[in-house]
Each structure stands twice: as structure tokens, then as C-alpha cells.
């Protein structure tokens, strides 16, 4: 079972990882966007980590909601708001439950993916973070080692889309230039999943 203490530990690992990835994420984003993805992720992860003592021990959903609000407070970037949207969707699914079975994680990621798709007005296949989430949902079905499967799915999706053009958002303006480049949002999701699962 995954409990609120596991979430707190994951938040601490996420903060450490985002401190380290600050420059790399800014640089990846700067090629196609405004170059602040590292800023978004570092300030978001710092705020989530700073609030872990406010997470209620007996409510996984409220703990996730707490993490979502951390992102809405410190960041207004599209990526930060999308992450908060996804976290809120997962929070609604788990409200009132003290813990979550690992087999239910795929459903939580699917709920996040769907709400983020609606809010971001993007579709699967557009070379966005949605494609990373979608790949994880598929890979987690019946996986023996869900954490490893999630990390592999993110890395594989990132690589599979590398040579495709971006189809939405600011990167769309640079569609041709984006061929051969990692989508910054997919790259960030790989780093997030590596950090929260502890499987780098």
C-alpha cells in the first residue's frame, strides 16, 4: 500500500531532483519556449516539500490536494498549472482514503491524463506530457514492478516522440525545429517519475 508517508518521502526526493535538474530543464525549454521550466519545477517541488507536514496522515487525497495547491501557489506557467490539474484529479479519486493500492495507480494517472487533456486542450500524439502519462497507464496494467515500468514507459515515450514535430503550444511555432528534440514537458515527466519512484 502507498500511504501519505510514502508521498512525503517522494516529495523530498522530487525536491532534490528538481534542484539538480534546474539548468537542464531551463535549457531544454529555452530551445522551444520561454526557458522557465526548471524555474517552475524547482519552485513547485520546493513548495510541495515545504508543506509535507501539513499533509493529513489519514487522507491520501487531501495530501495530493495539498501538493496541487503548492503548484498553483508558486507557478502560473502552463506546465505548473497542468501538473496541479492532474494532481487535483488524482486527489478527487482518493479523497478520504488513507492509502492507495499500487494496482490503482494506473487509474489515478489516467484520471490525471484526462483532466489535463481537457484543460490543456491537447490530444494524445501531440508530443506533450500527456503522451508520457498515457504510456505509463498502459505500462502499469499488470506490471510486476510498477515503479520500474513507469520509469521505462516515460523514457520510451520521450524517445519515441523525439523525431516528431510539436503540434501544440508555443513549441508548435517551431514545429520543424522541434524535430529531433525532446519535448521539455515529457523530459520533465521522466525526471519527476524517476524521482518519485526512486528509480533513477
Amino acid at each position: 500500500m502507498i500511504g501519505v508517508d510514502d508521498l512525503r518521502a517522494a516529495a523530498a526526493r522530487l525536491k532534490d531532483a528538481m534542484e539538480q535538474e534546474f539548468d537542464a530543464l531551463n535549457a531544454a525549454d529555452g530551445k522551444l519556449g520561454d526557458g522557465d521550466l526548471g524555474v517552475t519545477m524547482r519552485s513547485g517541488a520546493r513548495e510541495v516539500a515545504a508543506r509535507t507536514d501539513q499533509m493529513p496522515d489519514d487522507d491520501f487525497g487531501m495530501a495530493l490536494m495539498n501538493a496541487a495547491q503548492a503548484f498553483t501557489k508558486v507557478s502560473s506557467s502552463s506546465y505548473g498549472t497542468l501538473l496541479a490539474t492532474g494532481l487535483m484529479a488524482a486527489a478527487k479519486e482518493t479523497r478520504g482514503k488513507a492509502s492507495v493500492e499500487p494496482s490503482k495507480v494506473a487509474a489515478l494517472i489516467a484520471a490525471a491524463r484526462d483532466k489535463m487533456m481537457a484543460r490543456g486542450k491537447a490530444e494524445l500524439g501531440n508530443k506533450t506530457v500527456l503522451d508520457s502519462l498515457h504510456a505509463m497507464v498502459g505500462a502499469l496494467e499488470g506490471a510486476d514492478d510498477p515503479a520500474a515500468a513507469a520509469v521505462t514507459a516515460c523514457r520510451d515515450a520521450q524517445q519515441a516522440f523525439r523525431d516528431k514535430p510539436a503540434q501544440i503550444g508555443r513549441a508548435r511555432i517551431f514545429a520543424e525545429k522541434s524535430v529531433g528534440m525532446d519535448d521539455p514537458g515529457m523530459l520533465a515527466m521522466t525526471r519527476i517519475v524517476e524521482a518519485v519512484t526512486g528509480r533513477k
Binding site: S78, T81, R119, G120
Partner: peptide, 10 residues
């Protein structure tokens, strides 16, 4: 604008 729309919806 994408960012404004997302944040106002939120």
C-alpha cells in the same frame, strides 16, 4: 492565451 485560459479555469 493558453496559460491564462488554463489558470482562469483552475
Amino acid at each position: 492565451y493558453g496559460g491564462d485560459v488554463m489558470n482562469f479555469d483552475m
